[in-house]
Design a protein around this nucleic acid. Structure first.
Length: 555
RNA sequence: GCGCCUGUAGCUCAGUGGAUAGAGCGUCUGCCUCCGGAGCAGAAGGUCGGGGGUUCGAGUCCCUCCAGGCGCACCA
């Protein structure tokens, strides 16, 4: 029996109580679905609901009286072993072991599909994340968005959404020229210009640019800067793509800001917004009246000197996403960008969209290392590449995915490396590799889920140990957890769930042997437990995949 | 000054109005004669930042104060 089926049974009980006049409520005053949840305390049964507490007052009765009545109506439902009324009026429901354990077979047969849902079916979404400037390597700050963004893509897809992962390359503007000048300065061995980029990577880029373009030293200054800029940009972008690849993060679209300028899309965007009636001229500049919406001041699109602002490119980029057919646009941004929320929503509204439905801005808090702020220009960066090399992609991804994005994260500098062995990712991965070890040993002992005669030897009623009720209950929750993580855009819920599942599995493993002892015959209890073992293996693998973390067969 | 985020165990953090507030790490005590000890069982450790309020019920919602982070450009 699944929680959905249980919920329906409760709805039916409520409806019958209304029908025979026991419950003095209109049928349409009943909740559309009854919420059931896993109680924290094991002795409170497999599932619990507070529906009696919520309805009693409206019906002019007491929660306990209503709960008692519902308990009576539910008692004879097939698959339900016991219904108890507890505390102020909770209904605690215990399922028959067989009814609950059937899930193990369902999961094994569903395989990688278990956990997927249609919760977000039909939604077409563009999810933009990282979008770091191509003027330096990705550092630990970007790494958080890389891990969260990619996991979110996977989770949204598992919930049925059609998602395109997109990286916006800020390859236009004065910063690129400063970048080129900085690289050129390294080539010439001169001082890094004011506001330029520093760090060993700039020197390395200089060496590579010089090696491939020895003629650069003879070019006029402006041509040399342009060449250094374009060559270093190409190298740096390739480096970013390469390191993301090694991190298991892949984008469907790499979108160049420069193409917006070169194609005239920025100019067109300003015109389109003007047609919508939200653009005006003042002081020689062109403004978007973002205060028509939720912004606290208007924003400049075209400066008095004729140059478009970064904001104008943002508007053009938004229109591009709209034109390319994405009703849903999710931006995953760092907290240092939260000042843009209102103006981005204003762009959406000014373009004729509904900001509440067409744009969603997720703000993630920044990562700090022992209080030190990380600055590219200061050169004190911890690079993603180094992190992966030190503690491994799995451990980095997992430890950044197990916290909500809006939690400010403080990582302990040197501790991080030695911390790797204590990372909860190994606890979860170990549980998975343990299920695989059981499978290997089962094969050696000729314990199989399906017998030679075609019967499967699966008897869920044999899963009657307390740790099995807990474990099966946890497996039941997985699809809801995935759907919830998708709807709330919170990948960390997957990680926390997996930690709980791994704990339940380890406890079960310590209490219930899957394989027979050497002098023992293979019986259905062993085969049935193997089904459960493999169901856990499948859910661990499915969950880890949603986080972009590997599920090793051996460690 | 204004806005957004955060404040929960020694540390890093879970907990989208429910019952006795949890996990990992750290500390202490047990458990490998049989499926992997990267594990299990147990102990210690909390005025959920302070104060009001709403509710049958508040770590969770509202108000207020305190503390920390981030942001308030014709920069990108």
């Amino acid at each position: 029996m699944t929680p959905d089926e249980l919920s329906e049974a409760l709805s039916a009980a409520l409806a019958s109580a209304v029908a025979d006049g026991t419950l003095a409520l209109d049928a349409d005053a009943l909740p559309s679905s009854v919420h059931v949840e896993r109680p924290k305390q094991r002795e409170h049964g497999d599932w619990a609901t507070n529906v009696a507490l919520q309805l009693a007052k409206k019906a002019g009765t007491t929660p306990r009286a209503l709960a008692e009545d519902l308990a009576g109506r539910l008692g004879s439902t097939p698959g339900i072993k016991a219904v108890d009324v507890a505390g102020p009026g909770f209904l605690n429901i215990t399922l028959e072991a067989g009814a609950a354990g059937e899930l193990a077979r369902t999961i094994v047969e569903a395989g990688a599909e278990y956990g997927r849902s249609d919760a977000l079916d039909g939604q077409v979404i563009d999810l933009e994340y990282i979008s770091a400037n191509p003027t330096g390597p990705l550092h630990i700050g970007h790494t958080r968005w890389a891990a969260l963004g990619d996991s979110l893509v996977r989770i949204l897809r598992a919930a049925g959404a059609d998602v395109t992962a997109e990286y916006y390359i800020n390859d236009a503007g004065a910063q690129m020229d400063r970048f080129g000048a900085s690289v050129l300065a390294q080539i010439h061995g001169t001082e890094v210009p004011e506001g330029g980029y520093r760090g060993e990577y700039v020197a390395e880029l200089g060496r590579q640019v010089l090696a491939a373009n020895p003629q650069i030293v003879d070019l006029p200054e402006d041509e040399a800067v342009a060449l250094a800029r374009d060559e270093a940009y190409r190298l740096q972008l390739a480096e970013i793509r390469d390191v993301l690849d090694s991190f298991g993060v892949h984008f469907d679209v790499w979108f160049s800001e420069r193409t917006l300028h070169d194609s005239g899309a920025v100019t067109t965007a300003v015109e389109r917004l003007r047609e919508q009636g939200h653009v005006y001229d003042d002081g020689g500049a062109v403004w978007l009246r973002t205060t028509d919406f939720t912004d606290d001041k208007d924003r400049v699109l075209i400066r008095a000197n004729g140059e478009p602002t970064y904001f104008a490119a943002d508007a053009a980029y938004y229109l591009s996403k709209k034109d390319r057919g994405f009703p849903g646009k999710i931006y995953l941004l760092g907290a240092d960008h939260h000042g843009y929320i209102n103006r981005l929503k204003a762009i959406s509204a000014a373009a004729g969209d509904d900001p509440a439905a067409n744009i969603e801005i997720l703000i993630g808090q920044l990562v700090s290392v022992q209080g030190a702020k990380l600055s590219k220009r200061a050169g004190n960066i911890i690079e993603l590449r180094d992190l992966v090399e030190w503690i491994g992609a799995d451990a980095v991804r997992y430890s950044l995915s197990r916290y909500p994005a809006d939690t400010p994260l403080e990582l302990a500098g040197e501790e991080m490396i030695k911390q790797s062995n204590d990372n909860p990712v190994f606890y979860v991965q170990y549980a998975h590799s343990r299920t695989c070890a059981v499978d290997r040993n089962a094969a050696d002992r000729a314990v199989r889920r399906v017998l030679d005669d075609g019967t499967d030897g699966f008897d869920p009623a044999l899963l009657d140990h307390p740790t099995e009720a807990v474990l099966v209950g946890r497996l039941t929750e997985f699809p809801r957890i995935v759907a919830q993580a998708a709807e709330l855009r919170e990948p960390h819920r997957i990680a926390r769930y997996l930690e709980g599942l791994a704990a339940d599995y380890h406890k079960w493993y310590a209490e219930c042997r899957v394989l027979p002892y050497p002098d023992e015959e293979v019986q259905d209890v062993h085969r049935t437990r193997l089904w459960l073992n493999d169901a856990v293996r499948q859910v661990l693998a499915n969950g880890l995949d949603l986080l972009g973390v590997s599920a090793p067969e051996r460690m």
